[in-house]
Design a protein around this nucleic acid. Sequence first.
DNA 1: GTCCAGGGCCGTT
DNA 2: AACGGCCATGGA
Length: 235
Amino acid sequence: MKITPQTLYQILNSRFGSLDWWPMDKEYHTKKGSDQRFEVIVGAILTQNTAWSNVEKAIFSLKSQKVLDIDSISKVGIKKLQKLIKSSGFFNQKAERLKNLTLYFKQNYQGDLDHFFEKDINAIRTELLSLNGIGPETADSIILYAGNLPIFVVDAYTKRICERLPMDTKISYEEIQSYFEKELEKSYSKDELVKIYNNLHAMIVILGKNYCKKSPKCKGCPLNKYCNYYKNSNQ
DNA sequence: GTCCAGGGCCGTT
DNA sequence: AACGGCCATGGA
């Protein structure tokens, strides 16, 4: 029996509930739109192939030195920026990526991110992908979690979980993404989709961290009765 | 000490 | 188009 994205959503949702994701502190919610968006964007860059706990330290450092906004990052020295984000790893390239991106927003949108997200999704995505250091997952995370626009984020967890489950998914990023979106659009209205994509990706990350690890911990996984890998491994 | 994490780029086949 | 090496820290 195949598993559809809709079924996957329902199984995970009945276990994990609604997560309304992007891990941030309380103070974050008091910020105005553009600064909130920017904080998510910085997190999306810093978390590339990196544990979130290491990203949190970096964001805290940036915040404590008051360089967590477009203007400050564009002005701060590259060496200081590298030092502040050191804990997030790959700090040389990530510092450069933040500088580039910030400069881009400043030059093209006067630092107004609300304006940046007013275009249609494809235009935003193409623009993000043209920037150095922003690939598909980072672009889509930014669109979904900073832009609050409907796009499904595919990551290493999503690919791994899809491979282990009996699903009709191909291997490439765009194929998995369009399959999930096509299916979920059948079951949910346009207004609901942002929430659904937000929550589904969040739940997939939780599942990937706690159960469907590279070396899997199948005990207690809500997908056990559907999973090829679980059956084959006979745990 | 070894493995791994919410990728992406670049050079080689 | 697909693959491998590389980037780097901190926690398990």
